[in-house]
C-alpha cells in the first residue's frame, strides 16, 4: 500500500469582509491540489470566495484536559465586561 497523501485543514471565507472559518479537512498531495479539491468538496454551492489550506501536522492545539487551568485567569475578572459597571440611568449611550 502506498503512502497516504497528507491531510489538510480547510478554511473558507464565505463572503468578502468575513474571516476564514474552519470547514473540515481533506487529503491532497500538495497545497495546490488541496485548494482545488477544497473548491470541489466545500464550495459546490458558492459557499466561499477565498480558501486557505494548512497541512494538519502544522496545527498546534491546546489540550482539552488543561482547559480549567488555561482559562481560569478570566473567571474572576467580571470587570472586563461593560455590564460590571453601575451607572445612573441618566447616562445614555455609553
Amino acid at each position: 500500500m502506498n503512502k497516504e497523501w497528507p491531510l489538510w485543514e480547510i478554511f473558507i471565507r464565505s463572503r468578502q469582509g468575513l474571516d476564514h472559518k474552519h470547514v473540515g479537512s481533506l487529503h491532497a498531495a500538495d497545497a495546490q491540489m488541496a485548494i482545488e479539491n477544497a473548491r470541489d468538496v466545500y464550495t459546490r454551492r458558492m459557499e466561499g470566495v477565498s480558501i486557505w489550506v494548512v497541512e494538519s501536522k502544522h496545527i498546534h492545539a491546546s489540550n482539552p484536559t488543561e482547559a480549567g487551568e488555561l482559562y481560569d485567569p478570566a473567571n474572576d475578572k467580571a470587570y472586563r465586561h461593560p455590564t460590571f459597571y453601575d451607572l445612573p440611568d441618566e447616562v445614555k449611550h455609553m
Binding site: N2, K3, W5, A29
Partner: peptide, 15 residues
C-alpha cells in the same frame, strides 16, 4: 487510480 496517487506524490516531492 494507484498510478495517479503515486504520480501526484512524486510530483509533490519533486517540487
Amino acid at each position: 487510480g494507484a498510478w495517479v496517487r503515486e504520480a501526484a506524490s512524486a510530483y509533490a516531492e519533486k517540487k
